[in-house]
Amino acid sequence: MEAGPRDREPTSSETSEDGPRLSPDGPEDETVTDEVQVELRPQRRLRIWQLAPIVTLAAVGSLMFAFPLAFGTGDGGAVVAMLGLLISCCAAGAGMMTARRVGHTWPGLPSRSSGERPDWRVLALYVAVGAVLVALAVWRVARLR
């Protein structure tokens, strides 16, 4: 391979009628072969180092939320339950942000690079379900007092 400008005239060995024609990449082959296209970029998926802190936070938060509610452990139960709910919500938010960074979307919503607008009915459904879940959790913790 030579290092130099590419705008020079081809030599007689590159354009000979009896041999293969040379291009800057090498000889051009006239025969067609079955080639396999392989993606060089790795697939975008969640890795274990991304999932481990999310799963740990979700497990700790769920346990902190569930035990005071299930066993009614005195005056501090509501505080521990709310702290567990907060940790669980943090784990859910971290999971959503990580999944979005990898390229996953919620069912019914378009992908980030599609340029499409999300359907307002799907967004309203997600907001309504989230609001009901938060209201039920806060109501249950408030009943501890």
Rank of each mutant, 00 (worst) to 15 (best):
R140N: 14
V32S: 11
V55I: 14
A52F: 05
T15H: 08
G72K: 15
R140E: 15
Y126C: 02
T56A: 10
S114V: 06
S62N: 12
R41V: 09
E30P: 15
L40Q: 00
A91R: 06
A78P: 09
G4E: 02
R143A: 15
R100P: 07
R112Q: 14
L83A: 15
F71P: 02
A3S: 07
D75W: 14
W106G: 00
L136P: 01
T73L: 15
G19H: 04
L136G: 06
E14I: 09
R21G: 02
L133I: 02
S13G: 08
P10Q: 02
V32D: 13
C89N: 06
R47N: 04
S111D: 10
W139I: 07
Y126Q: 03
A124E: 00
E2R: 05
R145A: 13
D7S: 04
C90I: 15
V79W: 10
V79M: 10
T15K: 06
E9Y: 11
A70K: 10
V122R: 13
S62T: 09
F71L: 13
P42S: 07
V132R: 03
I54T: 03
L125Q: 05
D25R: 15
P110K: 07
V129S: 03
A124D: 00
A81Y: 02
A59N: 03
R47A: 11
T31G: 02
G93W: 13
F65P: 00
W106F: 15
T11H: 04
D7I: 01
V79S: 13
C90L: 14
T56H: 01
L63M: 15
L144D: 08
V127F: 08
E2P: 11
P53S: 10
T15E: 13
R47P: 01
L51I: 08
R21L: 15
E14Q: 14
L85F: 14
E9P: 13
W139G: 11
G115R: 02
L85E: 07
V80Y: 06
E14Y: 03
F67S: 05
E14V: 09
E39N: 10
F71E: 12
S111Y: 14
V32H: 14
S114W: 05
T56V: 12
E28I: 15
S16H: 09
I54W: 01
D119E: 07
A81V: 03
S111M: 09
R6I: 12
L133P: 00
